Computed example of a mutant assay.
Amino acid sequence: MPELPEVETTCRGIRPHVKGRVVTDVVVRNGRLRWPVDTQLASIISGSTLREVSRRAKYVMLTFDAGVLLVHLGMSGSLRVIEPGAAIGKHDHIDVVFGRALALRFNDPRRFGAFVWHGDAATIDAHALLAHLGPEPLSEDFSGDYLYTQARNKKTPLKSFIMDAKVVVGVGNIYANEALFAAGLHPLKDAGKLTRPKAARLVAEIKTVLAHAIERGGTTLRDFVGGDGKPGYFAQELNVYGHGGKPCPRCAKALTEKRLQNRTTVYCSNCQK
């Protein structure tokens, strides 16, 4: 499933190609995504200039003068730059066309993704899909003091806590495993036991892990590709995720693998306390 680094990689990949271009058409081959695509989308944004490509949590935000198109990649989606007239694949559901130069193609085999139009760019932060979200993990708003305060009296397992988008966005399962290992913190301990120094250390490691994953183009485990069609390479550098039963890279003790809220959780019972 594309997480924050993969979505950020997508934004960075497509931005130089489409920012400032005028939409000439929107071709919707299958609008039955997580929510039905607005049947008037083509008429709404055709003739409009794409002013900015940005990201909030795991949403790609395509900003026009008239509003914002929120794109979610779902479980298996991708948003790529293609040449108009390129061969159409089975799961190529939507093309946002920019004249004869190029198009943005949305491919989503499972159709859990979304194309949601919001007709007022100034109020996008209040949209129902965004209003409840916590701070961006790479922003100054996400700090050790913030995490410590949010964790007070919480009985939630620490891994589940940092994966809660109301606490902080974008810390998906892979990155939560890696950050907790780097910080030396046990994923199953109550979040409320997090001390201020440990909170600061965990925040620092979350920022480091996510920033490095973005630099490496995200993590390709199944079928994610970035905006340029190339896979991410962070998977080659994972310390614990996917390595259950293998030696810990620090102490060589076998890594423990468990299921937590139906997610794979891998940790070292010796190094993570």
Rank of each mutant, 00 (worst) to 15 (best):
A131M: 09
C251Q: 09
R201A: 15
G184M: 00
I214H: 02
M163L: 09
K193E: 05
V28D: 01
I174L: 10
V240H: 06
E136P: 07
K166L: 03
A122I: 08
H132N: 15
E237P: 00
T195A: 02
K253D: 15
E140Q: 13
I174E: 04
L210G: 12
R259V: 14
S143R: 03
L138P: 05
T220M: 01
N262M: 15
N30P: 01
L69Y: 03
E3W: 09
G170T: 06
L41D: 07
G77C: 04
F224T: 02
D95L: 00
I14Y: 01
G89F: 12
F181V: 07
P137S: 12
N239Q: 15
R152T: 13
I214T: 02
D65F: 13
L73G: 01
A235P: 03
F112M: 14
R263C: 07
A176K: 02
W117Y: 12
H132Y: 13
F112I: 14
T149F: 08
G134L: 01
G226Q: 01
A128I: 15
R80G: 02
R263E: 07
L73R: 00
V225Y: 05
Q272M: 07
V266H: 06
L147S: 12
L50A: 02
L69K: 05
Y148S: 08
L185N: 12
F112W: 14
K159P: 13
G119R: 07
D141K: 15
V27K: 10
T123P: 04
G67Y: 04
H91T: 09
V209M: 01
I124W: 04
R110K: 04
L102A: 02
K198S: 14
H212A: 14
A254T: 14
H91R: 07
D120T: 09
A254F: 08
F106P: 01
D108C: 09
I14E: 04
A191V: 00
K230Q: 13
I14N: 05
G172Q: 05
G226T: 02
H118G: 06
V171G: 00
G119K: 10
R56N: 08
A57V: 10
L70Q: 10
E237A: 12
P109V: 05
A176S: 12
Q261I: 12
N262P: 03
M75K: 06
P137K: 09
G20L: 06
T256F: 06
H91N: 09
V203F: 02
N270E: 15
Y148T: 03
C248I: 08
I14V: 10
L138V: 03
D120W: 14
P16D: 00
E6K: 01
C11M: 08
E52L: 03
D190V: 09
L147A: 11
Y175V: 12
G217I: 02
A86R: 03
Y148V: 03
A57I: 09
L129S: 11
K154C: 02
F64H: 00
V68W: 06
D228L: 13
R222V: 11
A183L: 08
E215A: 15
D92H: 10
L158C: 02
R263I: 10
V96H: 08
Y175R: 04
D108T: 07
V37R: 01
T24N: 03
F106I: 08
T156P: 00
E205C: 11
L102Q: 00
A183N: 11
G229Q: 06
G217R: 05
A121K: 11
H132M: 12
